[in-house]
Design a protein around this nucleic acid. Structure first.
Length: 417
RNA sequence: CGGAGAGUAGUAUAAUGGUAGUAUACUUGCUUUGGGAGCAAGAAGUCCGAGUUCGAUUCUCGGCUCUCCGACCA
């Protein structure tokens, strides 16, 4: 894509109404637009990143047997009354609205009840189990105070997976599988090294649930990390009994601030029983259905990647989530036409070879282009200029490491394709 | 929800009870091209409502919005 056709622009100054590093950089680099507090639009570059994170999640969910659907944002009050989650005193993050006939509706903050209601029609027998169903969808939460840029929004993209199994044992086995899949997701998103499986409160469902917490000062949670064992305990549940149960000792734990990028928990039969969904076993007897819920905040992952990897020059994207693989920059100089002709050719060849390339074809000074490239954070930068053409080469620089090398024009395509 | 602060061109800021300034971005022209280039010209602004006043962007009140601290985060 030609950069002159991106309608967004970079900015030199961070906006005055953002403090969070993720929002400041994403706005300065033209990835997102703040619509209102906690509500952000994704512009061309931002959408490509968001879609890449979604794609990684899809691949990992499909690999463990997940089946994708898409539910609705509008939610029928009745189902939530049945599970006792309609009342504002119970769930205070609802956005509520109504039909013209005054029937009450909510905007989904999660979709457990909605999915169970769908499944009433499709799960009747042990032959219909197990089922692992997920979606990637916008969630709405009426936070009293949204903060931290795109990391705690009122409208945000989330992947929610739900498992339905016959027994607690089957639930436990799938729960383990999801843990491994989640580790894959975060590794591929470039935050694997700083993301820890974290023991957390199970609420009303079970003794523990697990969170995936990424170490960052931008985080709102406090966790205690055992770095050797690669696990952590949320401050909320830290006590001697818990530590003993997990085989951890206090002296090995380090206190860290962290961002909750995912969580997994076993709901058991609470919601399925409440909404009256059962299955018939081999003897035809009615049995309770075991449920698990597994979330990843997709947009929050994007924010977390920024918080963890960005440097003082701007964004730094790992290869799998970057909006483009290559940023091609032409620096015109005195022999401007010759340089831009060579750059045009290289751009066309890269596109033909299937390389995702952003071509800075703008009439902007060299310094401006280079600074913008750093800010936008595409993993590999190719500069083509009078200087490089003298050697029939291009300069290739890795954004993350700063490593630079010259690559001959004649082999440049093979190098990147 | 409790507390605190702030709303001025697209963005970031200054000033003012009486013609609102600067930078940047934008438009045009010329020059320039390896780390946010230069000159010239141009276009562009006081959140909304009420009150006080001859006159309000400025003062007062209300609203809306934004930010921060706390609480909240099923």
């Amino acid at each position: 894509m030609k950069q002159s056709q991106l309608f967004t622009k970079t900015r030199r100054e961070p906006p005055s109404d953002e403090v969070a590093k993720n929002a400041q950089l994403l706005i300065r680099a033209g990835y997102i637009h703040k619509e209102m507090a906690g509500v952000y639009a994704y512009l061309p570059l931002g959408l490509r990143v968001l879609n890449n994170v979604s794609r990684i999640i899809r691949e990992e969910m499909n690999a463990i047997g997940g089946i994708e659907i898409q539910m609705t944002a509008l939610q029928d009050k009745e189902k939530w009354v049945k599970s006792n989650r309609w009342d504002d005193a119970v769930v205070d993050v609802w956005f509520k609205t109504a039909l013209k006939n005054d029937a009450q509706l909510g905007l989904g903050f999660t979709h457990d009840e909605a999915l169970i209601d769908i499944l009433k029609n499709y799960i009747a027998s042990y032959k219909d189990l197990p089922r692992y169903i997920y979606q990637i969808q916008t969630k709405f939460r009426n936070e009293l105070r949204s903060k931290s840029g795109i990391m705690r929004g009122r409208e945000f993209l989330m992947k929610d997976l739900y498992s339905f199994t016959r027994t607690q044992q089957e639930l436990d086995a799938f729960y383990e599988k999801v843990q491994r899949a989640y580790h894959n997701v975060f590794r591929r998103c470039g935050i694997g090294d700083s993301t820890y499986l974290t023991f957390s409160s199970g609420g009303t469902f079970s003794q523990f649930s697990h969170e995936f917490q990424t170490i960052s000062d931008a985080g709102e949670d406090v966790i205690y990390v055992d770095q050797a064992k690669k696990i952590a305990v949320n401050k909320d549940v830290l006590n001697d009994e818990v530590l003993k149960g997990l085989g951890l000792t206090r002296s090995n734990l380090v206190e860290k601030k962290a961002i909750e990028v995912g969580n997994i928990f076993r709901q058991g039969t609470r919601f399925t029983d409440a909404l009256g969904v059962y299955y018939a076993d081999e003897k035809g007897e009615r049995q309770s259905l075991y449920m698990g819920g597994y979330g990843i905040g997709v947009s929050r992952v994007v924010g977390t990647i920024v918080e963890v990897l960005a440097d003082d020059k701007g964004l730094v994207w790992p290869k799998e989530v970057a909006p483009f693989a290559v940023h091609l920059i032409a620096i015109a100089g005195k022999s401007g036409e010759k340089v831009s002709a060579a750059a045009d050719n290289l751009y066309a060849d890269l596109e033909k070879a299937g390389v995702e390339v952003l071509y800075d074809d703008r009439d902007v000074s060299a310094g401006g282009k280079l600074a913008d490239a750093d800010l936008i954070g595409i993993p590999t930068r190719i500069v083509i200029s009078e200087k490089t053409l003298e050697k029939d080469s291009v300069e290739v620089k890795e954004r993350a490491s700063g490593e630079t090398k010259m690559v001959a024009l004649s082999v440049a395509i093979d190098h990147f394709a």
